[in-house]
Design a protein around this nucleic acid. Sequence first.
DNA 1: TCTGGGGTCCTAGGACCC
DNA 2: TCTGGGGTCCTAGGACCC
Length: 431
Amino acid sequence: MFALVDCNNFYVSCERAFQPRLEGQPVVVLSNNDGCIVSRSAEAKALGIKMGEPLFQVRSLVEQHGVQALSSNYALYGDMSGRVMGYLASVAPELEIYSIDEAFLSLHGMERWHGRLDDYARRIRREVKRRTHIPTCIGLAPTKTLAKLANRVAKKDPALGGVLLLDSPERRQWALEQVPVEDVWGVGRQYATKLYSLGISTAAGLARCSEAMARRHLGGVVGARLVRELQGYPCHHLAPSEDGSLARQSIACTRTFGRPLSQFEDVLAAVAAFASRAAEKLRRQESAASVLTVFLSQNRFGTTPPPHTRSAQVTLPVATSDTTELVRFARSLLGRIWQPGSVYVKAGVILDGFESGEQKQLSLFAPDGSERTARLMQKLDALNARFGGNSVQVAAAIGAVGRQPGVWKGQQRRRSPAFTTNWNELWEIKA
DNA sequence: TCTGGGGTCCTAGGACCC
DNA sequence: TCTGGGGTCCTAGGACCC
């Protein structure tokens, strides 16, 4: 039996955990540059504010109803996520951290120790709330896809008290009939449109599909597995994370600038900073990358024909996690795609092609100096961990001498304090 | 005026080989 | 003009996820 634990309105709930005045209020959390809505409280949803909607399009609604709009504070959310996941890791033998606010648990055979699994889930839910102030819903079912579906039903139906267990054919059928097909895990816009045109509008309808039909219309083997999972035959297993961290196969750092940029030095400073961040993440998971991509985008709104994203990629002679080296390659790739006179709104750096364990052995014989570099990078990470953010950077990330630094950075006018992660912004308890 | 930032997996098709 | 039948590896792009 799988359990999916999903935090409700996670970013908003994190903010509320430290700002009780937000309780009961319509609240939204905004994306980078305060651009789009990425998390909504129930009250904000009730006002008709949609997920992913640009703030400026709902400005009047926000003002009219006094919606609290907060800039995102990822240091806070990451820290809160760690607390929730840390507790969940203690309630089941295996945990797969699926995203910042969701985890799959394997509860196989746990009835023996904990009695009815839905009762056990209710206790977990209560305890997460008590420890972190984060509300959750829990779906329990024989497959991951059904656990997602159970979770979704539990979330929509208050009578269920946040927990739904699908342990009989009747319960399962009942739940499948509740859920529109577009809300099934793995069915996006394209597939939903296709399914509706085939007369399939609910999860129950999709579960009745033949394998041939699923293969034909839903991306081959992906669709076949999806239908099997809805029928109760597990095709996806748990990918447990040993220490709570996830080893990624690619690492990206991309941002929309605070304002459009046309000076090479300004964009270079951004790209160098992105490469540095990506290298940091890379070292944290003890990987080394052999493929580096840099891209630049122009404004994609209100222009015809749609403007391009230019990108360039290089395969490195030797996989590395050395910031200075990655920044050097990133700079040269940027030079390749840079077009003087163009105006750019966004850039990004992507690391790929991580080396495997055996390949890493070879680096023992890497050119002289690699060990020195490794020690330097350790010190760099330690300093930045201790003094915060970007205390120590490579020069290119700061920008040319005499230029204003970080002009690519956006504004976060509505950010809450970093209650848990910054000494200067600790939560104050007034006596 | 203002429009996010990460990730995953799979497939098709081309290059290349025998 | 006719011009096999495999196999592998790689990449670009599409679809999905939160």
